[in-house]
Write a protein that binds this DNA or RNA. Structure first.
Lengths: 246, 246
DNA sequence: AATTATGTTCTATTATATGGAACAATGCGG
DNA sequence: CCGCATTGTTCCATATAATAGAACATAATT
């Protein structure tokens, strides 16, 4: 294991997590590394362009270079490329907030979103994560994972936010996904918010990604509910065709 | 200089630049490093979560972790945070494509965009770069840089794309920015595209960022031209107030 | 079946990262 | 105004950790 790289990455991670510039001593203290070592690591990170040192205060912060690299990675992402145009269409049909997510272990990662004209109060940012079992789109993807049950049990056992969940209920939701192609949650994730999730199926029989539609509960009556479900399922099917062709 | 970190980063960079998975031998060949070393580097990058190895083909590719970190960095960016709501307003007023950019050396970096309903054919992606002297918003920022002339001359001398430019003409554009607060270009960057750029001034008398409005030439008559200029200048002034308060 | 290219593991050698201490520069408090 | 403390930076001998070559194994190609 290359320990130098691990240390360099941990310094960078600290700078990324912290909002605003950080002092060298603070970094050394937090990482329990000698000041001289941290200084050397920062010097190479500066030379590589990932870190900048404020001239006046001497404090260090991350540059936008990492963000640039990240944009390259996401631009190539097959699910995102395939989904973008159809997400627009789904947004026009429903006039609500649309999210694109992928499954990563027991979490969902938000890749992209289109905000409703009147946006939700707490909108999740692209790049953020949530527990898969707590979200409709997360369950939509888990429904096609072989080791879903294991993931559910581990989440409930180890994650504070999932403490109150019932394994049987979650498994029933997965069954709903397999039967009807989607699942919905009303207020269980955030109060007053109703959310729908459906998987974008890949060639291997597992979900390549998922789409969610979220709307304020009071804006959703029976007609709108049926409308959203139809549009969502149609959209996911279309995207799945496109993904398959890549 | 920590050579191990440099090598690790260069491996990661190769994976980020390359679209799709890469073979270990290809990496070793391109970077002129021994296979065993590259293998070790990749092993630690995998352990850190930045790289994944395809089970079937054995090839390596970058994960989304770098993108997640980048999202954290950009989310904190003061200019982007301050500009976002006003960019929406500017988009509503003009109905055209809006871009947010910052200056980095002799280049502009695209931070954010709002696409027009009928988008331009070649729209620049957030995270991409262009030569500052070739763009209206780039010149808008250079107009308030102390070493602008030096940057202009170097760009024209060393960059292929800037070969045909005339130093005097560019300096005149900068003067226009300082006098009128904006500059515009009709077809010089991309044929058939008309673009306007204005700086968002920071407290130190230099530009913290710039906003551009781009539209198809045939959609812009004299009335629309005046409309865009007024809305753009108003927007940049409002954003500058907000940035100053951070 | 033979051949080429692949990814992976091992090991001795050396170069390279290490961390303490000494230094300088800035800020803080009496 | 002058210590006192904390900051960032430089230096250097030591030992650790990265190095590169070779040997190996596995898969693809002829």
């Amino acid at each position: 294991m290359e320990s130098t790289i691990v240390k360099g990455v941990s310094v960078l991670e600290l700078l990324v997590r912290n909002r605003g510039p950080v002092r060298l001593s603070a970094i050394a203290a937090e990482l329990k590394l000698p000041k001289s070592g941290v200084h050397r690591l920062l010097a190479t990170l500066i030379e590589l362009g990932f870190v900048r040192q404020d001239e006046d205060s001497g404090r260090y912060s991350a540059t936008l270079k990492l963000w640039e690299w990240g944009q390259n990675i996401i631009a190539d992402h097959p699910a995102k490329r395939a989904a973008a145009p159809y997400m627009e269409e789904l947004h026009r049909l429903t006039q609500e907030t649309i999210n694109l997510l992928v499954l990563d272990g027991d979490e969902v990662l938000f890749l992209d979103k289109i905000l409703a004209a009147r946006p939700l109060r707490f909108s999740t940012q692209p790049g953020s994560r949530a527990l898969a079992v707590m979200t409709a789109p997360g369950k939509a993807m888990l429904a096609h994972e072989p080791d879903a049950e294991e993931i559910i049990e581990r989440s409930i056992a180890t994650r504070e936010r999932a403490k109150g969940l019932d394994v049987k209920q979650v498994l029933a939701d997965l069954e709903e996904v397999r039967a009807k192609g989607y699942t919905s949650a009303n207020g269980s994730w955030t109060v007053g918010i109703c959310s729908y999730g459906a998987p974008i199926m890949g060639r291997n029989g597992r979900a390549a990604a998922a789409i969610s539609v979220t709307a304020p509960t009071e804006r959703v009556d029976e007609t709108k509910d049926a409308q959203i479900v139809e549009a969502l399922l149609y959209t996911c099917a279309r995207i799945a065709e496109t993904v398959g062709q890549l």
